[in-house]
Amino acid sequence: MSSDRFHTVVLRVENKAGVLARVAGLFARRGFNIDSLAVAPTEDDRFSRITFTVDVESAPLDQVVKQLNKLINVVEITELDPKSSVERELMIITVNVAPENRGQVMDLVRIFEAKVLNVGYDQMMLSLSGAPSRVDDFEQLLSPHGIVELQRTGRVALRRLDKIQAAPSAEES
């Protein structure tokens, strides 16, 4: 997925019943194509954060932002362009791992700094959190083994700090 086409937008919304339905309903009726969506409470319990990525070929970003702004319960909208934000996503995945392939899979786990959550006779459950593109790569490299089940959280993001304060990890892209 090209990063020009999908933009990450973060909403601070009032923590009220039905807010997610309002946001989702708006996406549906205006034909905004959403690729990923994550919702969770924030440090302030009056508000929640909704982080989503939108396909700007389905609608101009400007319209997406302005239409969302019309929702009374949406308090703040921030567009995070990939260059100035840090994005993370968590995946947990169960793969088929015959005993003779365990070494290969464990190599991937080490290279990606993933975690082993659970091991069965011929399956493993792994988790990885990281930049969405890394999570994509990990998933792709595991797929020849046979993915039994997987769950991704959808991306969350925060604005990148000023360079001086930043402690960039190797993983940041």
């Binding site: 019943a17 039905g18 009726r29």
Partner: peptide
Amino acid sequence: TTGITMSVTKHNFLVT
């Protein structure tokens, strides 16, 4: 009612 009218109102409230 609030679900049905969500897309045809500027805003709606369910008072609890």
